[in-house]
Design a protein around this nucleic acid. Sequence first.
DNA 1: GGTCTTCTATGACCATAGTCTTATATGACC
DNA 2: GGTCATATAAGACTATGGTCATAGAAGACC
Lengths: 200, 200
Amino acid sequence: MSLREKKKIETRNKIFEVSGRLFKEKGFENTTVDEITKEAGIGKGTFFNYYPTKEALLVDFVKQKEELVYDLVRNELKKNIPVREKIKNVLVLVARSNEKDKEMTRLYVFEYLRHYGYEERKSHSLNLIIHDLLEKSAEKGEVKKGIDIKKAADILTATYFHSLMEWLWSNTDISFSEDISGKIDMIFDGIGGSDLERKK
Amino acid sequence: MSLREKKKIETRNKIFEVSGRLFKEKGFENTTVDEITKEAGIGKGTFFNYYPTKEALLVDFVKQKEELVYDLVRNELKKNIPVREKIKNVLVLVARSNEKDKEMTRLYVFEYLRHYGYEERKSHSLNLIIHDLLEKSAEKGEVKKGIDIKKAADILTATYFHSLMEWLWSNTDISFSEDISGKIDMIFDGIGGSDLERKK
DNA sequence: GGTCTTCTATGACCATAGTCTTATATGACC
DNA sequence: GGTCATATAAGACTATGGTCATAGAAGACC
């Protein structure tokens, strides 16, 4: 590795480390780019050579966090259990990981939404995972025949995010992971009454 | 009405009118508060006497739009048809209204999320409407007995918003109102296979 | 080890949202 | 209709994210 490359990595790490500390200490909004660069011992312009905006830092923080969770998720995916349970477990895992750092999650969800779609509209990775699980289990009859898998995956993903947001902005300490679990069951079983009930 | 009150209303209207025109002409981001105040013939400070932030303007625009839709919605609510249809129709109505002005909807959704929960966490009015509909129809057997109505309403609302966002940030011109319609059916019927199917 | 090219760092500079102090217009009261 | 209190207007000023032209460091080539 060339000296140039080494220095680049060093600078990037320094920015990442310093800003992480400052965000924890005083929050994202209350930390200025000036402070970060002063503390990191670099010029202000240098910061923007590494991150196009202050918000772009959040993406890195989340990537770091995601790596940890996805190890657990991959592990869960290997298990031989019904899809419904598997989806539940995966979402609960991710939920738990988010529960660990409410502010960072809030910032990121927000940032994610802001840039949602400016890039090449890859779906959220959770949606992909769920889509995949549903597809594989469709053959086993765990999912209704002839159903539109994409729509089903969307409903599950939507419910996950909605619960996440409900939790993120609530002050009460309701458990996000428990909430999502119950909702998944409802989605599988349906909320409509049977014809039998309706005729009563 | 005193002269003071009259002038206040006049100023507010002027700001509203001018900014609406400028946003349409050049987009929200590309319009500065300076421009708005220059064009409206008021001082910059005055603007902030009426709206705490530039974004606060969006709330007023959406209120205006909502008033139009809610007339239609109220009308729909009176009809004597199955809940499933009613919910579908209401969501499609709101969806259609959003389809009319994609940029404004996008800006507002974003702004709504930013301040989500800073206020007194009243649920989104759509959620309330759906919750209400489900509750009333629970007795008729149109909804499964003993189901958690709040969770059910959440799933429907979540799905609505997810479809909305999917549409908002997509470039393709898929119809948002059609998409949501199909998803509502799935939520009522459930996506899980029957025990019978599973045993095959 | 000198020279030339290219990549990186730098901070003065710019744009713009939002604040704050001061001036002015309005209305209440005599 | 004069005087005082108060609501509102105003715009100079501040804070901060982001740009850009220039200087300097690293590497390539002889």
